[in-house]
């Protein structure tokens, strides 16, 4: 570069002034933002408060947010301050010859590593404590509720609908789902064809439905109300239409619904294959034989 360059003289006092400005602006903004995040948005964060697991997830989102927002704001403050103050002028001067700063770098490593390790530890605690946090835990979950009094609900996904089987109610199968309040529920999620995903948004429950595999998730209901069930794993053309609603109701309402369904479905229940954790769909009656022998569809051979 055959041109004369303009090299300004360095003053460390000025640097300290900039640093103080940035930290002061950031601190004020971050405190205000964190208060808003926790108290104003916090109570409205998804997935709500309908189950123990949903409350845990909401608490998690709040905690991660009050940690993430100051980080975001620090970088924004720095960025906007830099754009405003550290601009080149018409003199086309060069910047200072600074290739690193041991203290700054060390502080950055330590702070980011501590944040990250805390978050990993916190996330693990929040996963283990509320019995797997509503996520799919595979066929033999190790993080379970402390009680063995569980309402068993089997979620069977197929292209393109969910049905539910109730082993404690004669193995009946329903197309709708109602759950009793203040009850520990064990969802056993499986699929008859491709991979689906059972997402009960307000319950804070999500578990993939895999063919030939049982995926268990737990939730403890705490409030009555309606919840949405959606398929959350692409499963073919009607994936977008694969949803229904469920309700959390009082225990007595649930019991009368379940018993009447059981009686109403008794004749159909007899035709169903025996309750199992997985079913292998087969037109030929091999494997688990989901379709009964007399199935009119069983004629493809």
């Amino acid at each position: 570069m055959a041109k004369t360059m303009n090299f300004p003289t360095y003053s460390s006092e000025e640097g300290k002034k900039h640093a103080r400005n940035i930290v002061a602006i950031w601190f004020v903004v971050a405190v205000i933002a964190d208060l808003i995040v926790w108290f104003v948005y916090g109570p409205h964060m998804p997935p709500g408060t309908m189950t123990d697991q949903a409350r845990g997830a909401q608490f998690d989102i709040k905690v991660v947010s009050v940690m993430a927002v100051p980080v975001l704001l620090f970088l924004w403050t720095f960025g906007f301050y830099a754009v405003a103050k550290f601009r080149g002028g018409k003199d086309r001067a060069e910047g200072y010859y600074i290739k690193g700063n041991v203290k700054t770098q060390a502080a950055w490593y330590i702070i980011t590593a501590s944040l990250v390790l805390f978050l990993a530890g916190f996330g693990t605690y929040e996963l283990v404590l509320p019995a797997g946090a509503g996520g799919g835990e595979g066929p033999s979950p190790i993080w379970r509720p402390s009680t063995n009094k569980l309402l068993q609900v089997q979620v069977i996904a197929q292209q393109w609908r969910f049905t539910y089987r109730w082993p404690q109610f004669g193995g009946m199968e329903t197309t709708s789902i109602n759950l009793p309040i203040n009850t520990e529920i064990q969802f056993n999620v499986t699929s008859l064809d491709v991979i689906h995903d059972f997402w009960a948004y307000q319950l804070g429950v999500k578990a993939d439905a895999n063919p030939d595999s049982n995926n268990v998730a737990f939730a403890k209901t705490l409030e009555t109300g309606r919840f949405t069930v959606r398929c959350d794993e692409l499963c073919g053309i009607w994936h977008g239409a694969m949803f229904n609603y469920g309700h959390v109701v009082s225990q007595s309402q649930f019991l009368s619904w379940a018993q009447s369904m059981e009686a109403q479905n008794a004749s159909v229940t007899k035709l169903l294959p025996k309750y199992a954790t997985t079913y292998t769909p087969s037109y030929l009656g091999a494997g688990g034989g989901y379709y009964p022998a007399g199935d009119p569809n069983g004629t493809l051979n």
């Binding site: 998804p46 997935p47 697991q53 845990g56 997830a57 998690d60 989102i61 991660v64 993430a68 980080v71 975001l72 978050l119 996330g123 693990t124 929040e126 996963l127 509320p130 946090a133 509503g134 996520g135 995903d197 997402w199 948004y201 804070g204 429950v205 999500k206 959350d232 794993e233």
Partner: peptide
């Protein structure tokens, strides 16, 4: 990057996975 922290947290992932 910051939303990456949300999706990597398993309890939050229950809500945001696939969304």
């Amino acid at each position: 990057g910051i939303t990456g922290v949300y999706v990597s947290d398993v309890p939050i992932n229950v809500t945001v996975h696939g969304s």
